[in-house]
């Protein structure tokens, strides 16, 4: 039976790698990236995937091989009576430590781009204020004067429009409980926190419609707190804003 069990453990790296090879061609895997910063995240994902994949295969194959090779039922060699090896301990402490430290430092720039280098701090005006509320996304655009909180603000729900290839600055808020502003194709995720206004910035590189997902549990209706992101040309975007404003004025 030792052979059977060894092979069972060998099936772990085989299927483990197999699933990740099979996945992308069957629609599982990172969705298409349409953001300016997303390639950094995808690159890191792939980098870590390959690195951990190698460690995974190596350790699991070693596990298999030792089980196969040192099965008491098939090999009568005496056990290697040892309590460990100082040199090995040093090696397998320092190598992973260096690798982990490298990953830690390597990723810092990408993190800073998405979460630290806030263009709002350099005076960029807010493009749109997004407020999570059970169970919808309330949107407020500054209107022609470029300022929020003036009478020409444009209000809308769940249907977020932005111009393509332009830096967008979102002011993210919550009216009641935690929500999370998740744009899978734009590699953006940020909790909306009651009592806080959190800046979120990104640049979309392709026009189209994308899902706006609420990714933080916000109550029974969490699953249906769905919005849509429309990325369009500057011209279409301006026209949409004008139409929205006109429609809003008409109902006043």
């Amino acid at each position: 039976m030792g052979r059977f069990w060894s092979l069972l453990f060998l099936s772990v790296p085989i299927f483990g790698v197999g699933v990740f090879v099979w996945a992308p061609s069957h629609g599982y895997g990172l969705p298409k990236d349409v953001s300016a910063h997303g390639h950094q995240i995808d690159h890191l994902w792939n980098f870590i995937l390959i690195l951990t994949g190698l460690v995974f295969v190596a350790t699991e194959v070693v596990l298999f091989w030792f089980l196969w090779r040192y099965d008491a039922a098939r090999h009568a060699d005496p056990v290697k009576y040892t309590h460990g090896s100082h040199n090995l301990e040093v090696i397998w402490t320092i190598l992973p430590a260096a690798t982990l430290l490298f990953i830690a430092i390597y990723q810092m720039n990408a993190w800073a781009d998405v979460k630290i280098r806030n263009p709002g701090a350099e005076g960029m005006p807010i493009t749109v204020e997004v407020t999570g509320r059970q169970f919808e996304w309330r949107l407020r655009y500054p209107g022609k004067d470029g300022k929020l909180g003036t009478p020409d603000d444009i209000y809308h729900v769940n249907d977020l429009h932005i111009p393509v290839n332009e830096e967008i600055l979102v002011a993210l808020k919550s009216a009641d409980v935690l929500h999370d502003f998740f744009l899978p194709e734009l590699r953006i995720k940020q909790d909306a926190v009651p009592g806080m206004q959190i800046p979120v910035w990104f640049k979309a590189t392709e026009t189209g419609w994308y899902d706006l997902v609420c990714a933080e549990l916000c109550g029974w209706g969490h699953y249906k707190m769905k919005g849509r992101l429309t990325v369009e040309s500057r011209k279409d975007y301006d026209k949409w804003l004008d139409d929205m404003y006109a429609a809003q004025e008409a109902t006043k």
Partner: peptide, 12 residues
């Protein structure tokens, strides 16, 4: 753990 099963006489 891997070091422990290296050179062992494993009983499954």
């Amino acid at each position: 753990w891997l070091g422990t099963i290296w050179g062992a006489r494993i009983q499954f």
